[in-house]
Design a protein around this nucleic acid. Sequence first.
DNA 1: CCTCGATATGTTCAACTAGACATATCGACT
DNA 2: AGTCGATATGTCTAGTTGAACATATCGAGG
Lengths: 124, 124
Amino acid sequence: MNTDRTTGLTHLRVTLSERFYIGPGRADLMELIAGTGSISEAARRMGMSYKRAWSLAQALNDGFGAPLIETARGGKGQGASLTPAGREVLERYRGMQEATRRAIARDVEALSALQSICLAANNT
Amino acid sequence: MNTDRTTGLTHLRVTLSERFYIGPGRADLMELIAGTGSISEAARRMGMSYKRAWSLAQALNDGFGAPLIETARGGKGQGASLTPAGREVLERYRGMQEATRRAIARDVEALSALQSICLAANNT
DNA sequence: CCTCGATATGTTCAACTAGACATATCGACT
DNA sequence: AGTCGATATGTCTAGTTGAACATATCGAGG
């Protein structure tokens, strides 16, 4: 099911409150909404149903307590977009992902090495 | 269902390979196994079924490719424990959690502040 | 050789989830 | 007024998941 939404090695979820968190999937969705200007198109590209994407958007807005994703129905200007707050949340999250990657790089490397050693020992 | 296995604000999952990853739940389970010397007791304390805990232990061992959790059946020395590799994996993971916490502290703070501002604006 | 506590493993049933469909709604534009 | 593309929402169904429940197994020690 999960086409690995991990963006590399680290899957980071930041919980701001009892009702709001952001992780790789939600961030990717926000990014695609910003890029395509449409929830349905973002859903297609993420390989999920429109309904699921819409529900996630709702969860983001409701959980945060203020709109992060705005929608407009009908006519030419219809579609979805990020609010300024939404853009900041996304940007911050990307920053945290990068900071985390840097912060744990050495440990990840060490774990990989440990695993290689164990695997080699098993083949003896 | 999920009694929040986040240990604070950050939920970090590190994917070492296609077949192995470690996150907060698996780390907690390993820690409890190390502490109690028993899978069943660890399961009880985490509020999960023995079977689920046992499956997780299997997934950890199988995924890593070498035993991280060892078990012994029968008699006095029976129970479960971490192998040296298991101890190192756990220790590294805790280190990465801490490093991540430090690395993103400022951003988390900024996001919290942003949320407060938005909530205040909504009450106007 | 029988007990005891813990591991090992299969089965079954309930709950949750996600996806598929099916519409309803909206509003600028022609 | 009618078209069109996208949002908004409900319903139904199938697949997944996990918790119970039920045993089987192990082996040191009394």
